[in-house]
Design a protein around this nucleic acid. Sequence first.
DNA 1: CGCTTTATTGAGAGATATCAATACTTGTGG
DNA 2: CCACAAGTATTGATATCTCTCAATAAAGCG
Lengths: 255, 255
Amino acid sequence: MNYKPTDTHNNKCSICVLGQFCLPVGLKSADVSKIDELIKERVHLKKGESLYRHGEALNSLYSIRFGTLKTEHCLQDGRQQVIGFHLPGEIMGLDGIGNGYYQSNAIALEESEVCIIRYEAFEDLAHEIPDLQNQFHRIMSRELTQDQRHMLSLGTMRAEERLATFLLNFSHRLTVRGYLNNEFDLRMSREEIGSYLGMKIETVSRMLSRFVEAGLIQIKQRHIKLIDMDALYVLAAIENSDRNYCKPVFSPTQN
Amino acid sequence: MNYKPTDTHNNKCSICVLGQFCLPVGLKSADVSKIDELIKERVHLKKGESLYRHGEALNSLYSIRFGTLKTEHCLQDGRQQVIGFHLPGEIMGLDGIGNGYYQSNAIALEESEVCIIRYEAFEDLAHEIPDLQNQFHRIMSRELTQDQRHMLSLGTMRAEERLATFLLNFSHRLTVRGYLNNEFDLRMSREEIGSYLGMKIETVSRMLSRFVEAGLIQIKQRHIKLIDMDALYVLAAIENSDRNYCKPVFSPTQN
DNA sequence: CGCTTTATTGAGAGATATCAATACTTGTGG
DNA sequence: CCACAAGTATTGATATCTCTCAATAAAGCG
């Protein structure tokens, strides 16, 4: 731990605008105040600081209040890969529950603030509030689904398609948080994008240039504007009708 | 649903040899009998039959009693990828909790049997038994970690390394279930292996041939014998000291 | 303002995909 | 039980994509 938790008074979940993305989804307001009791501390991180590291004992989960973080997984030979970028309202640290130790590094990509959710206390509360337990299961499950999509991206798509998918996914996540959907700042470097997408920094750069040439995007440094989202969707092999990813697509049939 | 649940009498968790891998881990025996009440039905699947399909409403989770299943994720343009192979004791269907619909197809690779865990009843029981809730969280978390490892494999490893990793991982999972660690049957086709590992069937075949030539394995059809596991571990970039993947490796340090 | 980091662009190398031919298995029906 | 067809796997030759190496440019930082 390289941070100092701050005990603040105005970090109640009951008044947090992120409530709709975070733990309290689906909870009665009486229950939300119980979560207020649970989450008493926050952590402020400067760019580059880590929230937790691979191998540390899990004591807490975290929910992002503002900022952006990345998580990365490490191999013994030193190779490592960014496995996720995380935005406000998202829960971090879930991979540490399995054996009690975090399985990844979580590092701030910019000035960020994170609510501390003491894990044991959380489990107790989840036991007390079935709605909370349910929401937690939904959160973990969505995480699984998201990881699976990313695997599919890594396993079957070409660099160009992966990058288009990444940009659209990021755009979508910003949109639901109330930001512009077609213009935003990438908080991560080209190298981090490449690591996440399983390609080298040069390839990321080339593909971005290609998108610019084709009139799909404009980009200046890390500020990006999506010009032709339809074309990006086509590249990403995401049909218009399924852009939000969450409708049933196949009807139940045999094999 | 293309199967017919069978109501049997001898499928109690309390006497199931898979207890140590499945839901009941860490539960008091009194609580295990409550799970006996929960899980009253099983499904028998023939090779090629599906347990659930992308888009179907989630009513149940499943735990594998015997056999092997694969899960696959689909893209709108028809591409699809195998995202997991599943062995006895593993829980399936978790990706459907997020929005109430399964996000993948689950298909039997051989004659298999699966216990039906009615989801609503399960949530109720988990609420009643904190140990069960905890174990469920551990299971989901491990699934996340495993997916993250797979991402790393897909994103940063070369075909040869991915295949070595796959063989060792499979071997390890069989070993903990009491099977031989160096000799087993692959229940999936080369194509399915390739899909899982993000490579074409020809590449799988070539890499296997290469392993045979190098004296690392013997393979006849789908029966495989791991001859030089040490060399495979080196290929897979897994250090001897970390073969079971679950010890802390990095000490807590800044960035 | 200069230094360090980050990003872009080019040329060539390497890995994996694609296309194609062949061999081997498995299952089916006569 | 054999013969044939369909599916599955192996192997080779070539094409394509992405990586690697290298040079340059631009931006961030002290």
